[in-house]
């Protein structure tokens, strides 16, 4: 089997995945996206890959690469569709809502004036997020009109054109924690709770993780969310409201998991590589992320 790993910087997660590939004696090519040049009329050398594992830290480079591989019919994990949906919160919300997955209310506006109107209609506090972004960057919890006016003005003057799309999310009054579940294929393999005194609970922002036993609700909602975005290998961020009801906040398609192996006791890299191999061996359809029909008959 020939596996390519698309990356830009090697984080702890990539090294763990490499170690797992090494442990199994599987050879793989490291493809640094920063050195990559695609000739759009030359796909033959890429077609030698049975599967490409996408681990780029840059969403835009990942998407351009996946778009090309998708056009050439080269299996990728995650695939272009999953990246396109998960990498943009507007797309994620639309997919979740379309598939009836419980998620906070979202309004989208295109000018500071209409955004302010939308925020006032939703009621304070609200959460304003860039549609593309991660690690809790540039999130704003807006508690009152004065803060709304200030942030909207800052975004309209200082932001790039991306920030002229105002993604306004209902604030869920979570109890100082949120839940991250990991879904591989159709299985919720583990989950952690991330605790922080700050309302942003991302581990990239200092949130601490502990094991979250997978209850029926966590499992169902996680798998529903994964299916809604196209499947594959994803990390689902869930929030609890004051009544304990869970909402899907976001879905991540190049998931980081370094802080979740020890508390859960689950070998996440092993599960990821199992899936990659299954795609590479043709047991899982790389477009639908479903077992191929012959596999379905067996199971």
């Amino acid at each position: 089997m020939r596996i390519g790993v698309l990356y830009a910087n090697i984080r702890v997660e990539e090294k763990l995945l490499f170690k797992e590939l090494d442990r199994r004696g599987i050879t793989y090519d490291l493809i640094d996206v920063r050195k990559l040049v695609f000739n759009l009329k030359e796909k033959s050398k890429w077609q030698e890959y049975d599967v490409i594992l996408e681990r780029c830290i840059s969403h835009s480079r990942a998407m351009a690469s996946l778009r090309i591989f998708d056009s050439w019919g080269i299996p990728c994990v995650n695939n272009y569709t999953v990246g396109e949906i998960c990498g943009d919160k507007l797309n994620t919300s639309l997919a979740l809502i379309k598939n009836g997955v419980r998620t906070p209310e979202v309004k989208v506006a295109f000018t500071p004036e209409s955004a302010l109107e939308a925020i006032e209609e939703m009621g304070y506090p609200v959460v304003l997020k860039p549609a593309v972004g991660s690690w809790g960057r540039l999130l704003a919890r807006i508690n009152d009109r004065e803060a709304a006016e200030a942030i909207l003005e800052h975004k309209s003057i200082l932001g790039t054109y991306h920030h002229s799309i105002y993604y306004i999310q209902e604030h869920i009054n979570k109890p100082g924690r949120d839940i991250r579940s990991f879904v591989v294929g159709d299985e919720t393999i583990c989950a952690v709770v991330r605790k922080s005194e700050h309302w942003i609970t991302n581990t990239a922002r200092g949130g601490q993780t502990a094991n979250w036993p997978i209850c029926e609700e966590t499992d169902r909602l996680s798998r529903e969310a994964a299916k809604a975005v196209g499947g594959g290998i994803v990390a689902v961020d869930l929030m609890e409201d004051e009544k304990g009801e869970l909402f899907v906040n976001e879905v991540n398609y190049t998931m980081e998991f370094r802080n979740s192996i020890e508390p859960t006791g689950v070998n996440i890299p092993e599960k990821v590589i199992d899936y990659i191999i299954a795609v590479g061996e043709g047991k899982i359809d790389p477009v639908t992320n479903s077992p191929k029909s012959s596999e379905k008959e067996v199971t």
Binding site: N9, I57, S58, H59, V132, W135, R137, H162, E256
Partner: peptide, 23 residues
């Protein structure tokens, strides 16, 4: 810091976090 070569090991400052970076 980013490891830019192995033999010998050379380092450079890691790229600054970009707006589209993440997971």
């Amino acid at each position: 810091l980013e490891v830019v070569s192995l033999d010998p090991v050379k380092l450079d400052l890691a790229p600054e976090v970009q707006e589209d970076w993440g997971e």
